[in-house]
């Protein structure tokens, strides 16, 4: 019995912290479940008469608003924006980590991209996209999201490959493996936890990106973030807070589900048992 209550203060602190940190989410969820009348009458967290009406409005496809199209656009662009950096950065990270290529110029330059305000890309990119016909396409949006995610992916993957004992590469070379086999069969599987981390972070960043979505798309490739803003005043007149909250909830679900599904892969170490520690 003693043990049962020993952890109680700890759990109380956890609960308070979780509540405070998730307050915006809880508040949005509560708003999404209220009627417009209740929202204006009682802005508190408690929902007196829960309703799914706001969700019904959001999921309704109209001429002007199509949430499924926005979700589809976001999904495709985010997958391009999260998988492409991995495909590009993994071999590059290997070259940087193992051979020391590009450590003087390329690596710092790429990582510094992260420090730049993204708006700096806006004007040249718009003009370039116009020329090559990438404006308002999922591929175009995905490509720039990949650039946004590149620095972090490279940084994390270089560290991951540095953690793979070099003797494994040498053992594979003795076993007759060429560089491609070493990369695919030995280094890649060992780096899976980091690759999962890179994928999740990149996907979430890409999914939540607003600036390029707003700038580079107009109708065909509008992503969820931009599409959500269309709902805010969808009814005409004042803000439709219930609908806005519902659309935010729907928009947040995919990255949250992805995060939950892949969470266990993030922090797992793969190198246990490879070499004597």
């Amino acid at each position: 019995m003693k043990n049962k209550y020993k952890d109680l203060p700890r759990w109380i602190v956890f609960a308070i912290a979780a509540f405070v940190m998730n307050f915006p989410v809880i508040s949005t969820l509560s708003t999404a479940l209220k009627t417009n009348a209740e929202i204006s009458r009682d802005p508190g967290l408690w929902v007196h008469a829960p309703t799914l009406n706001n969700f019904a409005v959001v999921l309704q496809v109209t001429e002007r608003l199509n949430i499924f199209s926005y979700l589809h656009n976001s999904l495709v662009a985010s997958l391009i924006g999260s998988i492409l950096p991995i495909l590009v950065c993994f071999p590059m990270a290997y070259a940087v980590a193992r051979r020391g290529y590009g450590t003087d110029v390329i690596f710092p330059t790429v990582v510094n991209l992260r420090a730049m305000p993204l708006i700096i890309f806006a004007i040249p990119l718009y003009m370039m996209y116009q020329t090559v016909g990438l404006l308002d396409t999922r591929l175009g949006l995905g490509l720039i999201l990949a650039v946004v995610n590149l620095p972090l992916a490279l940084l994390l993957l270089i560290n991951a490959i540095n953690d793979v004992p070099y003797e494994l590469d040498e053992a594979a070379r003795m076993d007759g493996a060429r560089i491609f086999t070493i990369l695919v069969k030995v280094v890649f599987p060992i780096c899976l936890p980091t690759l999962a981390t890179v994928f999740i972070f990149s996907f979430i960043t890409a999914w939540n990106e607003f600036l390029f979505g707003l700038m580079l798309t107009t109708s065909e490739a509008v992503p969820m973030t931009v599409g959500a803003s269309f709902f805010f005043s969808s009814g005409g007149g004042g803000g439709q807070w219930g609908v806005a909250a519902a659309v935010i909830i729907v928009a947040s679900l995919p990255p949250v589900v992805l995060g939950v599904l892949m969470y266990k892969h993030i922090s797992r170490s793969m190198t246990a048992g490879a070499v004597k520690g």
């Binding site: 004992p165 793969m270 490879a274 070499v275």
Partner: peptide, 20 residues
């Protein structure tokens, strides 16, 4: 010649087993 063309096997000090 590359290591794999020499027809030799090596046992490493740290074992160097593929952990996955």
């Amino acid at each position: 010649l590359d290591p794999n063309h020499r027809g030799l096997s090596m046992v490493f000090q740290s074992y160097a087993l593929y952990p996955h």
